[in-house]
Design a protein around this nucleic acid. Structure first.
Length: 132
RNA sequence: CUACAAACCCGAGCUAUCGCUCCAACGCAAGUUGGGGAGGAAAGUCCGGACAGCAAAGGGCAACCCACCGGUUAAUAGCCGGCAUCCUCUUAAACAGGAUAGAGAUAGUGCCACAGAAAAUAACUACCUCCAGCAAUUGGAGGAAAAGGUGAAAAUGUGUGGUAAAAGCACACAGCCUUACAGCGUAAUCUGUAUCGCGGGUAAACCUUGGGUGCUGUAAUGCCAUGUAUAGGAACGUUUGAAGGCGGCUCGUUUGAGUUCCAGGGUAGGCAGCAAGAUCCUGUAAGUAAUUACAGGGCCAGAUAAAUGAUAGUUUAGAAACAGAAUCCGGCUUAUGAGGUUUGUAGUUUU
């Protein structure tokens, strides 16, 4: 378990087209410029959180820039994913999708400080809901 | 040697920690260990192929593309070599270097800014002849492209004859051009002789001539799995042919029992294609070269929301440019930091 703390491999990535459509349709969103996060709690048997990242190709026409941002997002998630930890119940799965809403590549430097902040907000809002 | 320009080469190294993806081995498994992991343009998608499907890929028209010759190649609009024309340099010429949108303007149609009389079946001024008129620097009719000026371009140039004045009107020489013959060359072309002829440019305007192209594009395509429905309604039809295929149209040809619409439902996952190839490196040989042949060696990304990264330190040169594979190759075009190499700007010969 110890070695998996900072991992982010294929089983943790949000891949299913179905789930992606669902999270855009039903997911709740929290903003924190230059980021926006969509999250969703799903009933499941496997307790494994899923995460995905995305950049608008409208604002970033060059593939190099999009790759750069997605890498930074993934890296940030990988280093901070323990914040989410056990926010949800045993038979539930937390699905998150990070969107970069900034319009300039220079905004990407903010990712490393804003992304953990967003994750804490998610945990908070889930706990509030459970308390109610 | 310095500066500028162009072409080509190169496209950052090392250490530590945390990660991603593919392959192999081991393991019941979790996983562990080892190895591979973006580019010269991966880009633009502008050409050319491979491959696949459309029935077996046919004729005509349309559309599009190409346009001196030869070679090269799987193929090309690429590349290599040659020819022609133009430009640079020069008083001039040859060499050298550069460019080419290099079939046809004598098939036809159109267009040619400004200036100019006129931009194409040329008459403004000046010239000549005739008529009118007392005469005039007058008026009218005609001849005439020799002179003037305008323009990027003005009816091939010079001379002589000729004439009222003139004119390729005639002749001589020259230039261009058509055709024929001869010679060098595979050919374009070049040279020579004879000959028809001489009314500009533009085909990157339509067009004509010659040649070529079937269309689509790996989200192609084939297979497996899952799921449903053999539910329901309407129209047309089964040799008296519904509906299609041959992806522009048409001719022709061909399949032959289902097809279309309404309403409703399901799936959207895997495998192949798909990574050993017109392959890369080295050497030898052939060729002016592009390129080819042979020999030896190497295996060098393969994802599917999409891997190749992050942090810290350090070195060069300062926070290292342009930039990210998606079926695969060959080219073209464009972007590109620092450094390096070569070439040119400023060349040679004759007079």
């Amino acid at each position: 378990m110890e070695s998996k703390t900072f991992s982010y491999n294929a089983s943790e990535k949000l891949k299913s087209r179905k789930l992606l459509n669902r999270i855009f349709a039903e997911g709740k969103s929290i903003n924190a410029y230059p980021l926006k996060v969509l999250y969703l709690i799903s009933e499941t048997t496997t307790k494994q959180n899923l995460a995905g990242v995305g950049v608008s190709s409208r604002h970033f026409k060059k593939a190099v820039e999009r790759n750069r941002i997605k890498r930074l997002l993934r890296e940030s998630y990988r280093l901070n994913k323990n914040i989410l930890g056990d926010a949800v119940f045993e038979n539930q799965q937390l699905i998150v999708f990070f969107l970069f809403t900034g319009k300039d590549l220079s905004d990407a430097t903010l990712i490393s400080e804003k992304l953990p902040l967003l994750m804490q907000k998610i945990v908070q809002s889930i706990q509030n809901k459970n308390a109610n």
